[in-house]
């Protein structure tokens, strides 16, 4: 008891046993609270710095001494919550009024794999870990082969979310399926349930574990990647929040990707930055969903590989790689 109390804040030697007991309980409470939020609170300042530029919206506030100051609107909320809590609640709420949708134009894909590397850089993934992968497809012996970028389809009837035992993976009101790796227990039921093989697992120490160890976990970026948990495409939820196109979409040199909001009936091409009507794009080009017959209701649409911009070239790096 005495031993514990000496660690108490503002410990007074004159205190009686009762108060030292209180100190002990206080310590215990501090440890408990600390375990939940302490580490995150330490880094909340870091988050303010990181998010300052991101929000871009600011508010004029009256300070106690009567001055008017301009404060970033994100920072106002941040004061009342620790960094991790803020990111976690953002991550669960999504962006109001939005229904994100992606269109992948297969006639433009020439397997440049810029989307793959931009994605792997952003999410701190190892070379064999894919949120976005380009697959060489051939539907039947007589049909032509084509390259197909494949990511999480962010299904509206997501089989992966349905099986999660702890609400770690969840669908947001804006359609994005995310994973909370502060919660994930690593049972991998979601991987088994996903018909698109969209999910990956951190089997061993993640790529930038050492570098990222002081970062506050951002559920919208899934960085830092955590050992023993799931990772997958997040539709770059962090970029959507900033009004920017996803990493893969803006990295494509060939105009393959469109991304936008179904509620606005508009998608923006990542390469040309041209914004077009979603409904017209899908209607004019015969847009379809991947394995729609499974009833997963994907939020990713594909445009068939007709009138191709490039001749098909066999992927050179598609042999099994040695680790």
């Amino acid at each position: 008891m005495e031993d514990h109390s000496t660690h108490g804040p503002n410990h007074d030697d004159g205190k009686d046993k009762g108060s030292s007991r209180r100190d002990f309980l206080k310590n215990l409470g501090l440890v408990g609270v600390g375990a939940a939020t302490g580490a995150a609170a330490l880094y909340s300042g870091h988050i303010f710095e990181a998010k300052k530029e991101a929000s871009g919206q600011s508010k004029i506030l009256l300070t106690q001494d009567g001055k008017l100051v301009e404060v970033d609107s994100l920072e106002i909320k941040a004061r009342s919550k620790s960094g991790l809590d803020l990111l976690q609640s953002h991550g669960r709420e999504g962006i109001p009024g939005k229904r994100w949708v992606m269109v992948i134009d297969l006639s433009h894909c020439r397997n440049a794999r810029q989307c793959v590397s931009a994605c792997q850089d952003a999410h701190h993934l190892k070379p064999e870990q894919y949120h976005m992968n380009t697959l060489q497809m051939k539907d039947s012996p007589d049909t032509a082969p084509y390259h197909m970028p494949k990511n999480c389809q962010h299904c509206d009837n997501p089989p992966c979310v349905a099986v999660c035992p702890v609400d770690a993976t969840y669908k947001r009101p804006d359609g994005i399926v995310l994973i909370d790796n502060e919660r994930c227990i690593g049972c991998r039921f979601c991987m088994a349930a996903c018909p698109y093989s969209a999910r990956i697992f951190n089997w061993l120490t993640p790529k930038d574990a050492e570098k990222d160890k002081d970062l506050v976990y951002n559920v919208e970026l899934n960085v830092p990647q955590k050992l023993g948990t799931i990772s997958k495409c997040l539709f770059s939820a962090d970029r959507c929040r900033e009004g920017k196109l996803p990493y893969c979409v803006s990295a494509c040199p060939n105009g393959v990707y469109y991304f936008g909001d179904e509620n606005e009936d508009a998608v923006t091409n990542g390469t040309t930055k041209e914004t077009v009507r979603l409904s017209k794009l899908l209607r004019d080009n015969g847009g379809y969903q991947l394995m729609a017959e499974l009833g997963t209701k994907p939020r990713v649409y594909y445009l068939p590989p007709k009138n191709r911009l490039f001749p098909f070239e066999e992927a050179k790096d598609n042999q099994p790689e040695k680790v």
Binding site: N133, L135, P195, Y196, S197, A315, D317, E321
Partner: peptide, 8 residues
Amino acid sequence: FLPIQHVP
């Protein structure tokens, strides 16, 4: 359902 590619 989809092919396994670009992996070790």
